[in-house]
Design a protein around this nucleic acid. Structure first.
Length: 368
DNA sequence: AATTTCCCCAACCGCGAAGTT
DNA sequence: TAACTTCGCGGTTGGGGAAAT
């Protein structure tokens, strides 16, 4: 059985809609309502296919369409929802009154996605692009800081003219690979897919690729609060504001790209129709029971801490944590008004938030 | 001022799901 | 159950305006 054509294409107009066509469609829908898009254009006196009419209506003519620039809150919501839903634009649009899936999709592709990439964040996984990350910078910085709990400004790190240490990266790759093979946790936040692993290998094999590809002033506006420790990931799940879709199973089945929370340690009993738990966007890795992503098995590497209580963690924050972040950007307490801000302003506000928080850094002497 | 390049976004296309016969 | 229709989604395109040269 062949796929039915959406319409008889012969003689039907394509391309931009004229005001006259818009008016015809509006008049018809006001009189008869919408639906039966196949016959609608004919009845409305339009030389268009039904698909085109439906698209025009849903994306432009619908009376509840909100126009104009996306507010910061809307942008924040998009990023949050995208981290859960992926490219489920219609599902995201359902949470943004007046915005269409097409509009959100366009906005994501033209603005948000690019900004995340500039910041060194993978727009697909919402995790830092570790293929761009220079471990040697982190480690050497820790050497020269005597405090046990120090915070490093990521921008400063990125500005350091320190080249890649291929050996270190190779080490990291091997131990992460080892970690994957051990399969203590399929929810590796660092390397969620083979592509990232490949990127690591690529970096190791091409030490000329500078980490400084990411300019310090470009690494701004972090998206998530992510903490890496030397212990197994434990995703903090918390009910959001109740404004999430209730059918989690649908989300899980529809989401083509496995997301972290789907594979987390959270038991299946947490997913019920009555009580929906969703990630708070604060991925905290901390459990006493399992190995960590960056805690290799001793036989494969010496890339580990002598003290099992020591954490290698870095925390980026905070754009999308309205319910969990201590300093939500869109909280009432903030005086920043992003609704009228430029894109640069949106980025710069967050520029000091992307930083590494290294507590009791691992014994870096082992790497030297 | 003319040309080229870049960027945005409205609209199109193909596909799969859901509905109908 | 199969064949067919309709609808909706997500990826992609290309026209046109803005910016750069």
């Amino acid at each position: 059985m062949g796929r039915a054509p959406c319409c008889d294409k012969n003689g039907l107009k394509k391309g931009p809609w004229t005001p006259e066509e818009d008016q015809k469609l509006l008049d018809y829908i006001q009189k008869h309502g919408y639906g039966n898009w196949r016959t609608l254009p004919k009845n409305a006196g339009l030389q268009r296919c039904g698909k085109s009419c439906r698209l025009r209506w849903t994306n432009y003519l619908r009376p509840d369409i909100k126009r104009g620039r996306f507010s910061f809150e809307e942008e924040e919501t998009i990023i949050q929802l995208h981290s859960i839903l992926g490219n489920k634009w219609s599902a995201i649009a359902a949470r943004l009154p007046g915005r269409t899936d097409n509009e959100i999709k366009n906005y994501w592709n033209t603005h948000i996605r690019k900004r995340l990439l500039r910041m060194g964040i993978d727009p697909v996984t919402h995790s830092p692009r570790l293929d761009l990350l220079d471990f040697s910078s982190i480690l050497s910085s820790s050497l020269y800081n005597s405090s046990h709990h120090h915070q490093m400004n990521f921008s400063r790190l990125l500005g350091q003219p320190i080249g890649l240490n291929p050996e270190l990266l190779r080490l990291a790759t091997s131990l992460i690979q080892s970690q994957r093979e051990n399969n203590h946790n399929s929810n590796s936040f660092l390397l969620q897919n083979s592509q990232e692993t490949n990127n690591f290998h690529q970096l190791c094999n091409n030490p000329q690729i500078p980490f400084q590809q990411v300019q310090s002033n470009q690494l701004q506006q972090p998206i998530q609060e992510i903490s890496f420790s030397n212990e197994a990931p434990q995703l903090i799940m918390q009910p959001a504001n109740g404004d999430y879709p209730s059918n989690l199973s649908d989300f899980r089945s529809q989401n083509s790209q496995p997301s972290d929370w789907q594979q987390s340690n959270v038991g299946p009993s947490n997913f019920t129709d009555e009580y929906v738990e969703l990630p708070s966007f604060a991925y905290e890795y901390g459990s006493d029971h399992h190995q960590t992503i960056l805690h290799p098995s001793p036989e494969t590497s010496n890339f580990h801490s002598n003290n099992s209580n020591q954490n290698f963690s870095f925390t980026t924050s905070v754009l999308s944590t309205p319910s969990s972040s201590p300093t939500p950007l869109n909280s009432n307490s903030t005086t920043h008004n992003f609704n009228s801000s430029t894109e640069d302003e949106r980025e710069s506000y967050c520029s000091n938030m992307l930083k590494f928080d290294i507590q009791d850094m691992l014994d870096v002497n082992e790497f030297m």
